[in-house]
């Protein structure tokens, strides 16, 4: 294919960074090369015999390429590869390790909405959605991708600093027997047992229980 003489140092650390199955290929510039390096990207489905070029990532000078669309079938596994060009020279193709979207993605924390009564707090948890090709397209919750998905919920009494932890499978949790007129802060994490995946904890959402009307 009229390849140039490939003596340029190789791109480094070619790897997928994936969050909620938004799968972006990242790499570092070849050592010792300043500005002006261009790259092209190809990918392949593991077990299928051909490499496919990514036109939107041809002759680019950035060091990332979004392959979410090309790797959206999480029942498949993938490789991707990058080649560098500078002043008529090129590097070798540098490959990722085998990428399994199902086990190699990171998951965002759940969204939380809370409400309170005098003595209880109701917490509604929403798992993030899988990366979606187009906003109009049908959204898929990660709950559908990982049926064993659970939520770890932390509830903190701001006054006494006492904290409780709950592990729930469904997306609602009511915490009873709380003190009226007291501030509580809630944070939650997603936990999938197999494959073993967990998100970080969300930021804290605080709310006060209503004051005791009889007091």
């Amino acid at each position: 294919s009229g390849e140039l003489y490939c003596s340029l140092p190789n791109p480094r650390n070619v790897h997928f960074e994936s969050i909620n199955m938004k799968n972006v290929l990242h790499w570092s510039a070849p050592e010792g090369t300043g500005d002006g390096v261009l790259y092209k990207v190809k990918y392949s489905v593991y077990g299928v015999g051909k490499w496919i070029r990514k036109p939107e990532c041809r002759n680019i000078n950035r060091t990332w390429c979004d392959l979410s669309s090309e790797t959206s079938d999480y029942e498949e596994q993938y490789y991707a590869s990058v080649k560098a060009f500078l002043n008529g020279m090129c590097s070798d193709w540098m490959e990722t390790t085998r990428f399994n979207p199902l086990t190699d993605t990171k998951i965002d924390p759940p969204m939380i909405s809370i409400s309170s009564t005098e003595k209880s707090i109701s917490i509604i948890l929403t798992a993030p959605e899988k990366w979606n090709r187009s906003p109009e397209g049908e959204s898929v919750s990660l709950l559908q991708v990982y049926p064993g998905l659970q939520y770890n919920v932390s509830v903190l009494n701001k006054k006494t600093k006492k904290r409780w932890f709950f592990s729930v499978s469904n997306n609602t949790l009511v915490v009873p027997w709380l003190e009226p007129g007291t501030a509580y802060c809630v944070s939650a994490q997603i936990h999938v047992t197999t494959p073993l995946l967990h998100s970080g904890f969300s930021k804290e959402y605080c709310i006060a229980t209503l004051k005791d009307k009889t007091a």
Binding site: S44, Y46, G47, V48, G49, Y79, T97, T193, T194, P195
Partner: peptide, 30 residues
């Protein structure tokens, strides 16, 4: 004991897959 098997495989996945240079053939999936 799925958690144990998954953890065991995750620990050696990169090592084992690096020993398999053949991208164009899969045993189980194609």
């Amino acid at each position: 004991s799925m958690t144990e098997v998954r953890a065991g495989f995750t620990a050696i996945k990169a090592n084992i897959q690096a020993r398999d240079p053949i991208r164009t053939l899969s045993i189980l999936s194609h």
